[in-house]
């Protein structure tokens, strides 16, 4: 395959950044999008230019590191597919492909296509955990959990925190990410104890990081590589409102 690549290059967070065009030849249809970028990097190095910076780790669709907006869609055109699992056969020979980083103020570009996703870490730190003494946790199967509950929690836990939801959202809202993390814990008996405190803390942190509000358009759900559904956001809205009402009458600690 022959490709024309239009890629965002930015030296540092302070650099203005610009698109640069590259021609790449002999790309296998069976290579992944990241392997194609590896080829580009080799070509750039051979030409004595600086290699392209992009995030990646497991390359098997489970770590949530890869984060590219490909032709205007986070993770590209395939449904429920991370960039690393996207193969070049989904593109046409001779096609011009535009590659951009996630665009959101709370997720600033560090270099080229790499963005800083530490706001997600801070949202998790504020409540994405259960309080249990190390070494004294009971056996997982000692607490009976209905199948349906376990399935819902598992669907939420599938979130890999890649940030495609924020990237696709017209408001750069992190509601789907936060909702997945909150639903995952709030649904299970181990997490239910701290449900209200967790929900209040995580939403407050999310808002404080400067993400926009949700307008229920559903673009996040459409691009999520793990198929996290808007049902999670409905639950977050419900849990947050009820936590606020409880907090009004008796402060949640």
């Amino acid at each position: 395959m022959k490709l024309n690549l239009r890629i965002w290059r930015q030296k540092s967070p302070l650099d203005k950044g610009r698109f640069e065009e590259y021609a790449l030849d002999n790309v296998s249809e069976d290579s992944s999008f990241l392997e194609m970028l590896d080829l580009l990097c080799e070509q750039l190095v051979a030409e004595g230019k600086e290699a392209l910076a992009f995030d990646h780790d497991c390359r098997e669709g489970i770590c949530g590191m890869c984060a590219l907006t490909i032709n205007g869609i986070p993770h590209g055109p395939e449904k429920q597919t991370t960039t690393c699992q996207l193969h070049m056969r989904h593109f046409k020979d001779g096609e011009t492909i535009t590659v951009e980083p996630w665009r959101a103020k709370p997720l600033p570009v560090i270099k080229d296509l790499v963005v800083d996703r530490s706001p997600f870490d801070r949202i998790i730190q504020s409540g994405g955990f259960i309080s249990a003494r190390t070494g004294s946790a009971v056996d997982a199967n000692a607490v009976p959990i209905p199948k349906q509950t376990a399935d819902t929690a598992m669907d939420a836990a599938a979130c890999i925190g890649c940030g495609a939801c924020v990237a696709a959202c017209p408001n750069a809202s992190a509601m789907l990410f936060t909702a997945a993390k909150v639903s995952h814990m709030n649904n299970l008996p181990q997490g239910e104890v701290e449900k209200d405190r967790r929900t209040l803390a995580m939403v407050t942190t999310m808002d404080g990081e400067g993400f926009g509000g949700c307008t229920n358009v559903g673009e996040c759900e459409a691009v999520c590589p793990k198929g996290i559904s808007l049902d999670m956001i409905a639950q977050l809205n419900r849990d947050y409102t009820s936590a606020q009402v409880k907090n009004f009458f008796e402060p949640v600690s």
């Binding site: 239009r6 965002w8 698109f19 907006t69 032709n71 205007g72 869609i73 535009t98 951009e100 665009r103 959101a104 103020k105 709370p106 696709a168 017209p170 408001n171 750069a172 809202s173 400067g210 993400f211 926009g212 509000g213 307008t215 358009v217 559903g218 673009e219 759900e221 459409a222 691009v223």
Partner: peptide, 17 residues
């Protein structure tokens, strides 16, 4: 929302909205 995305995309496609 405007503040949360000061720089937009060069190419943006709507998937299901």
């Amino acid at each position: 929302s405007r503040r949360a995305r000061p720089a937009g995309y060069a190419v943006k496609r709507v998937v299901q909205a």
